[in-house]
């Protein structure tokens, strides 16, 4: 299975988790994702997701002075976003447990006899 398909489902939660730590702008967020192994992510995936999360009320943005150059758009988590992140965390823990169990069973199971 392609990695991008797997990532798509969890990217939203990961973006919320990174923004929960500190207010970030797009470039910062992309760098944070890449440093955590999401090396295939491009702006074409990230920017529509940020617009969607802001529209849904999980993120809020504000323009703040930037140390270098013009003001920048910073994203932060809203109370609703915190709630969404908590739900994602619970769902992910459960899903991960289920998948781990299936994989453990499959990998430890004896090879079927021909």
């Amino acid at each position: 299975m392609k990695q991008t398909q797997l990532i798509k489902g969890v990217l939203e939660g990961c973006v919320l988790a990174i923004i929960a730590q500190k207010e970030v702008y797009g470039y910062d967020l992309m760098q944070a994702l890449k440093h955590r192994g999401f090396t295939t992510i491009v702006g074409g995936t990230l920017y529509p997701l940020l617009v969607k999360l802001e529209r849904n009320g999980d993120l809020a943005s504000r323009t703040k002075p930037s140390p270098a150059g013009p003001n920048r758009k910073y994203y932060r988590l809203t109370p609703q976003g915190t709630q969404t992140l908590t739900e994602f965390s619970q769902q992910w823990t459960q899903l991960k447990g289920n998948v781990d169990q299936i994989l453990t069973e499959a990998l430890t199971h004896d090879e079927p006899q021909p």
Binding site: G26, Y27, M30, G43, T63, P70, K73
Partner: peptide, 12 residues
Amino acid sequence: AQLLAMLQDLLN
């Protein structure tokens, strides 16, 4: 406003 944010990121 969105395009400006994306352009600033591109410059980085």
